Simulated assay, not measured.
Amino acid sequence: MTTELSQIKKRFGTFEALKTISLSIEKGEFIAILGPSGCGKTTLLRLLAGFEEPTAGHIAIDGDHVSSAKKTTPPEKRNIGMVFQSFALWPHLSVQEQVEFPLRHHPHTRKDWKKNYQGRALDVLKLVGLEQLAKRMPNELSGGQRQRVALARALAHQPAILLMDEPLSSLDAELRVDMRKEIQRLHRLTNSSIVYVTHDQEEALAMADRIVIMKDGQIEQVGTPQHIYLYPETPFVARFVGKATMVDGRWEGNRFRPDAAPTLSWDGEGVSEVFKQADTYPVRPDQWLFSREQTGMEATVVNAMYQGRERHYAVEVGGEVIHAISPATEQYKIGEKVSLKMRQAEKQTKAHTG
């Protein structure tokens, strides 16, 4: 079954937090809702959870109509699981008791699991690698272990959809990477539908089947991670996901000539009409090619950062600062004059946009 959001709007007084959102989430799909603070992604998640009701439109989960402007099913009666940013574990319950709670009380728990809630709780803890810590209290656990408990509790009754609100933002960088892998593993094992809210582009690109990019209460673009990254449809998506620079120039059919080096000609296949109408071309930092031979756009290195396998540069072109990446083996000094060309992407079949 799918989860359907149809023509959803949400106002808080005169402020329109969501503007006509429609989205379909397939069973077993991992959807990342990506956008900056204030774009409406958490409001959307709260509507799915039942913490808010829509001003207009309706939501159906697993065939059940759970939200409209007239009637909203409360969170405890929806077939959902929820993982919060703050873990939200009960301090007086052990690890096993945290997982047993929804099994005993959730209306969508299978009858056999409700009857044998202790056995089901231990099975779920084994799934997340915490069966040996079943009797521990939350204050005896590390941050990563607490997050695993929160995941186990949310998955225990096998919800139709698992909602995750920036669940890794309070963890350190190395642990976040480990937990991404853990969530992906659990997704493969349980085949749960997941809606994952984040402002971290790397998380969304690494984990999701599809990404929903939001801005100012609206959906800017929906697609696979590859499609979103390679074929942005708006300047906002190009900048937010790909960190792209909008290069000014002139379009001649399907070829682009940058103003800074009009003798260059770039292929425009896959570039959105929005950019063509604005006479711009989005170029990501990884698409730039450096050279000391003046055969491209003249630039001056204004900053350089060594990043192990690569070097990140800020270069000035015609008064504008452009961010570019080169292999670590290529080293340029601050103040050095360089030439920039764009690496032409290999022909690729566009990924499914959803």
Rank of each mutant, 00 (worst) to 15 (best):
T329V: 13
A261Q: 08
L127Q: 13
S272P: 08
L171Y: 11
T300F: 01
G318A: 11
G354P: 01
V317G: 07
P262K: 10
F275W: 10
I33M: 12
D279E: 15
A160Y: 01
S142F: 07
F236C: 03
D279V: 00
L47T: 07
K341Q: 15
A278Q: 14
A60E: 15
L205C: 04
R11G: 00
G296E: 05
W113C: 01
S192Y: 03
L141P: 01
M1N: 11
D64W: 04
R250P: 00
L264V: 10
T224M: 04
A244R: 10
D123Q: 15
Q226C: 04
R11C: 14
R188G: 00
K71C: 09
R255E: 15
Y313E: 10
S67P: 01
Y313V: 03
M137R: 14
K333A: 11
G63C: 02
L93C: 03
E4W: 03
N303K: 10
L151F: 03
A324R: 08
I161V: 15
R120D: 03
Q158S: 12
A208I: 01
I228T: 07
G81H: 10
H65N: 11
P75T: 12
P54S: 09
R255F: 12
T20Y: 06
M179D: 12
L162S: 00
A204Q: 08
V338I: 15
L103I: 05
N79A: 05
I25Y: 03
A156V: 07
G13N: 04
A261S: 08
G318D: 09
P107N: 05
L5G: 06
L340M: 07
V283H: 08
A152Q: 12
D62A: 14
P91R: 07
V338F: 10
I61N: 06
E174G: 09
E174L: 14
P102R: 11
E298Q: 14
L171N: 08
R148G: 04
